[in-house]
Amino acid sequence: MPVFRWGNAWDAFRDLEREVDRLMGSMDFTLQGVRLGRTFPAVNLYEYDDHYLLTSELPGMKKSDLDLSIAQGILTLKGNRTADDVPDSSYRRSERYRGQWQRSLNLPDRVMEEGLKAELTNGILKITLPKAPEVTPRQIPIQEGGE
């Protein structure tokens, strides 16, 4: 009769794995309030009666640094955030995002792409997306099937 069985040994590992996962999941690694290491740029979407409002924090971005496009219900924001022209060795601290970034967002359905408006002020991007008028449900006539 085997004293050591692999099957049970792995079970113990699985238990450990689960335990570690649980522990990690319960921990909050983010420094409270510090906006570090997040997806850049962060995006919010709000729904109004007749439109959606998409906002994004893009500090330091100018209109010319930003590229917006929309196709097949996907809105793509693209840009490049250049750092100040100083050698890396001069940095004492570097928390701000730099470099190329891109985000593609699935738009809620029924948005009028032509009516889209965007404005960028003080590093905040606001995009207004008008909702398409509600389509009235179409009745499908049902014919009685013959014998």
Partner: peptide, 12 residues
């Protein structure tokens, strides 16, 4: 709400 903004510090 109050947030701590990300910063860079460099020598020039």
């Amino acid at each position: 709400l109050m947030f701590t903004p990300p910063i860079d510090i460099y020598e020039s």
